Computed example of a mutant assay.
Amino acid sequence: MDTTTHRIMKSYISPPSWYREAYYIFNFTICIMQFFGFAINLIHISILTRPQMRSNAVYRLMIGICCCDLLTQINTFLIFSPFWIRDSSKPEEECYMTHTFFDAILYLHGTTVLDITQRGASWMALFMAFFRMLSVKFPLNAKIQKLSKPVFALWTILGVIIFTSLTTWMVQARRIIREYDWDYDCDKNEIHLNQTRYGVLIPEEYIDVQARLVSIYGFIKALPSLIDPILTVFLVLELRKAAKRRKNCGKSLTADKTDNTTKLVAFVTISFFLLEVPNGFSHIVNGLFQNNVPVRTISVMIPVFAEFLPIINSSSHFFVCLLMSTQYRETARTVFKCFEPRNDNVVLVEECKSTRTH
């Protein structure tokens, strides 16, 4: 057996005995949650894509966030539901570190897309709050107000996707799929496999570089969640200042609509606060504690069980918009009316004829 290959395929984590059963139950639960979350987001995007909603830069950015959420839920479902879309593992395969080729492909490229979409939604929410804060703080500045134009929202979405794709590629580019004809059983004994299986790994010559890049990537992941609460505080402060200015000028109707939109942005932004912290923490720890098995084990287990956070977060946007936005509620009514059965009223018309008498 190739000793180099033997050194490469080793476990960097040592989960406790209860982890496997808990992980199975968690997968089953999260798959059920995703059905509901995906359905809610389909309704959400059908409302956001109406012409009256697309004319607003805030809602255009929310379209981008919703698209990322839908892709995130699809990828999470594919990665975390092996007993629904793939053959159930055989008892002897439960402890294998290797995968079938389909699972290896799904794990490598599925997690790549998952990282891009999750990061993309967080950064879009961050920019949405940032642009809104500038718009409220400088209402008469023509250059700042351009940030509120719908076309600028499209460029922001494109820029975010490019940025998240490049940063994700930074840590995923060196991962490869390698064939194995051996593995370990549940007693950690090396065994020969009857058929070729596959592992996703980092070549040994790139391990040190990868560790540093993963730490940097972890900080990039956590950065939006660290900025979100600070930006939300500034947004609320600017909202109060703007409300005072309008009150002195005697304006009320327009102010209410502006305040509701700003509050909506604040709620959506703060909902992303805890979303990326577990994942970012995991990457930072994995990079800094490469050979510390207990610490790495904890850092891997936390983000795995935190995968329900994106589902709850993305599903909440529909309800937050219903509560905070009058325009959203009015548009939702028009969407739901399309599914109501038509009640054609039948009007009886009696024809009256006049008769002439001589």
Rank of each mutant, 00 (worst) to 15 (best):
Ser271Tyr: 05
Gln145Val: 01
Thr326Val: 14
Cys186Gly: 07
Thr196Phe: 04
Arg175His: 07
Arg7Trp: 11
Ser17Asn: 09
Arg246Ala: 01
Ala39Lys: 13
Val304Arg: 13
Val136Gln: 02
Gly280His: 11
Lys149Thr: 15
Leu237Asp: 00
Ala266His: 12
Ala121Met: 04
Arg54Glu: 11
Val209Thr: 08
Leu309Gly: 12
Phe83Ala: 03
Ile202Asp: 00
Thr254Phe: 15
Ala243Cys: 06
Ser148Tyr: 13
Gly280Ser: 11
Val233His: 03
Met128Ala: 04
Ile311His: 06
Lys221Tyr: 10
Phe102Ile: 07
Arg342Leu: 15
Phe101Gln: 08
Asp228Cys: 06
Glu350Tyr: 11
Arg240Ile: 01
Tyr180Met: 12
Gly120Trp: 06
Glu330Ala: 02
Cys31Gly: 14
Cys338Pro: 03
Val285Arg: 03
Tyr96Ala: 06
Phe319Thr: 06
Thr269Cys: 14
Val277Glu: 13
Pro229His: 13
Ser316Asp: 09
Phe308Gly: 15
Leu213His: 09
Asn141Glu: 12
Ile230Gly: 06
Ile202Gly: 05
Thr100Ile: 03
Thr232Trp: 00
Leu154Lys: 15
Thr5Phe: 15
Phe308Thr: 14
Leu223Thr: 06
Lys10Trp: 15
Glu340Pro: 08
Val200Gly: 04
Ile144Trp: 12
Leu213Ile: 06
Tyr107Lys: 09
Ser316Ala: 02
Ile144Gln: 13
Ile177Phe: 02
Ile191Met: 09
Leu61Asp: 10
Ser148Lys: 14
Thr5Ala: 09
Ala22Ile: 01
Thr49Lys: 14
Leu348Val: 08
His6Asp: 11
Pro229Gly: 13
Ile40Leu: 07
Met170Val: 01
Ile79Thr: 09
Ala39Val: 13
Gly280Ala: 03
Met301Gln: 15
Ile43Gly: 14
Phe130Ile: 06
Arg119Ala: 00
Glu330Pro: 00
Tyr107Asn: 10
Phe339Gly: 01
Asp259Phe: 08
Thr297His: 08
Ser316Val: 09
Lys10Cys: 14
Glu93Gln: 10
Leu154Phe: 07
His6Cys: 10
Asn41Gln: 09
Leu166Gly: 01
Tyr206Gln: 00
Leu126Glu: 00
Asn343Asp: 01
Phe38Met: 01
His44Val: 02
Glu94Ala: 11
Arg7Pro: 11
Ile311Trp: 02
Asn260Pro: 07
Asp183Thr: 10
Glu94Thr: 12
Ile191Trp: 08
Lys143Gly: 12
Thr262Ile: 15
Tyr217Val: 02
Leu114Ile: 04
Glu238Trp: 03
Ala39Cys: 13
Pro278Tyr: 09
Tyr198Ala: 04
Leu253His: 14
Leu140Phe: 11
Val268Ala: 02
